[in-house]
Simulated scan of single mutants.
Amino acid sequence: MEGEGSPLASNQKDTRISSPFSWRGDSFPPILDSETPDHLEKIRDLGIPYIFDIHTHFFPETVMKLIWRWFDNVNWAIGYRLPEAERVKRLHHNGIKRFTTLNYAHKAGMASSLNDWTYTNYKNWEGAIPFGTFYPEEGVLGYVKKAVEDYGFSGFKLHCEVSKLNLNRPELADTFSYLQEKQIPILIHTGTAPLPGEFTGIEFFKPFLETYPKLVVIVAHMGAHEISAYASLLDSYPNLALDTTMVFVDFLATGKAEDVDFAVSYLETYQDQIYFGSDFPNIPYNLNHPISRLLELQISDLAKQKILYRNAESRFFK
Rank of each mutant, 00 (worst) to 15 (best):
W68S: 14
H189L: 03
I54N: 13
T101V: 04
G95S: 07
Q298I: 02
D301G: 15
A220M: 12
I291Y: 08
D261L: 14
D235A: 09
T245N: 09
G201Q: 02
T62N: 14
F52L: 07
L297G: 02
P136Y: 03
A231Y: 09
D243I: 06
L187Q: 14
K123M: 00
G109D: 08
N282R: 00
I54C: 06
L46S: 03
R293W: 00
T36G: 07
S10R: 15
A193T: 11
F131K: 07
G191E: 05
G197I: 08
T120R: 14
M246W: 03
G277F: 10
Y104V: 14
I129F: 04
W125S: 02
F204A: 04
F204M: 09
P213G: 00
C160M: 05
P30D: 05
Y80H: 10
R69E: 14
V140N: 15
E161T: 09
V140T: 15
G109P: 10
H189V: 00
L252P: 15
M64C: 11
Y275D: 03
A173T: 08
H159Y: 02
D14M: 13
A173V: 12
Y285D: 07
P83T: 01
A229C: 04
F156Y: 01
R293I: 02
G79L: 00
I17G: 13
F134S: 09
I186T: 04
V264Q: 14
P170Q: 03
F71Q: 13
A263V: 08
T101E: 02
P170T: 08
M64Q: 07
N282D: 14
A312M: 07
D272Q: 06
Y178F: 09
S236T: 05
C160E: 14
D53I: 06
K214D: 15
I54H: 08
V148F: 04
Y275V: 01
I17Y: 10
A312V: 07
D259G: 08
K89D: 05
G95Y: 02
T211Q: 14
L46T: 06
P207E: 01
T254K: 06
L187E: 13
F208E: 06
D259Q: 03
D259K: 15
L294F: 00
R169P: 09
P30S: 12
E181Y: 00
G142M: 13
P7G: 03
E198V: 07
G191M: 00
T120G: 09
V216K: 15
Y104E: 11
G3S: 05
F280V: 12
I43V: 01
A105L: 14
L242Y: 02
L233C: 01
E137Y: 05
S163D: 13
H221T: 09
I227T: 12
I78Y: 01
N75R: 12
L252W: 08
P284D: 10
E84C: 09
